[in-house]
Structure formats: structure tokens, C-alpha cells
Amino acid sequence: MAAYSVDLSTGNNYFDLNDILASQEKIPCIFNIAVEGLGYLDQSTPDPDIGVGTKLELPLWLAKYLHRDARGIVSVETPKTYREGYRQILAADPSVVDLHRLGPHFYLGGGKLALFNLPDIQDVLKTLLQTFQGRFRRIMDGSQNALHTDLTNQINMLDESERRLFAAGQRGLLEFQSWESRESEKLSTSSVVLNQRKRKWVGACRDSGD
């Protein structure tokens, strides 16, 4: 991820799958001009055209190019999960919020909103940073402490980038544990060889052939 990391504020990171997934998030848009023949996008009307003032949810990557400046084809609103109400919830206690439900790529998608000149964008970005700082301790403690407990509930509440962080923390702990219990000095079969099923198939074919 880091190798091809592009300035996130420009919203593009061509080689990052998560970045691509995050740009699929739908954001609410209002059409400023009428568009002929695209009425099928708005399934609530039988009208063949899209009229001025139609509200539609468009994916972020599309909205980005339709919203060039103030006179663009669409104007963009802040998505619900980043609005004042949710921001207050996050400010109250970030560590208990189910971020994955608010958006699997909450941080990445939120950062991409900087592309649009939203009036409250500074507050949104500030909330993202504070949310992460507030949740960091729990992620760290969860990933570094509990080895034999069921963490599914906690992991479910993390957004995708936090999950990667959590996995990294657990990896560190597990590696240390296996060193401490002298597991790591034992030679073991590489997982590549173990998972390679081709060789087994060859054997199986020969057996059935005989």
C-alpha cells in the first residue's frame, strides 16, 4: 500500500484496492441542470429525463467529475453518516461506535469528501482524526492483549483500515508468543507447500487410474 501511496487528498491511489472500494461509496447529489435520457438512473420516476433539482445518490468516483465547480452538473451534499448528528455521536465516545456499519471505509471515504467544497468539510476531517485518536487505545489493547478470547464483537465494530491495524498488532503479539514458547525455532512445512493442492491431485488421478 505504501509503495504506491499517492497524496490522499487528491483522492486517487490507483494501485490500492481499498481506495477503489472506498470510492464506490454513494453520496447524495442534486442535479443542477436537466439531463436528457438518463431518467432510468432515478427509479422513483417514470420520466425519461432527469430534471433540475433531482436528488440522487451517485458513487463518489462519478460525483467527482460531475461536480467540477460551483456551476457543475451536480452539487454535492455531506453524506448522512458524516453530518452533524453522527459527528456528535463520534465526539461523545468514539470507542463504542460501530464504524463498520457507518461505512466499511469510513476514514478513506471521509477523506475523499475533501474533494468537494462542502461547507462543513473541516469539521468532518477533524472528526475523523479525533475519532481515530479516541479509538486507538482500544484497538491497541484488543490486538495486543487478548490471545485466547473471542474478539469477533470488537473486530466487527472496526472499519476496514482499523481491521488491518488490528491484524498487524495481533501478528506482532503472536510472533512474540510463538518465540517465547519456543515454537518458532521448530522447522515446519511452508504454508505454500501445504496449500499446494496440485501435487495431491496428480497423486489422486494416478490412484484412480490404477
Partner: peptide, 11 residues
Amino acid sequence: LKSNLNGGGMA
């Protein structure tokens, strides 16, 4: 997250 906040609008 921080660079979003600092340079986001201008970039």
C-alpha cells in the same frame, strides 16, 4: 487523516 485536514482543500 492529518494531511487530509491540513492540505486537503487546497490540493
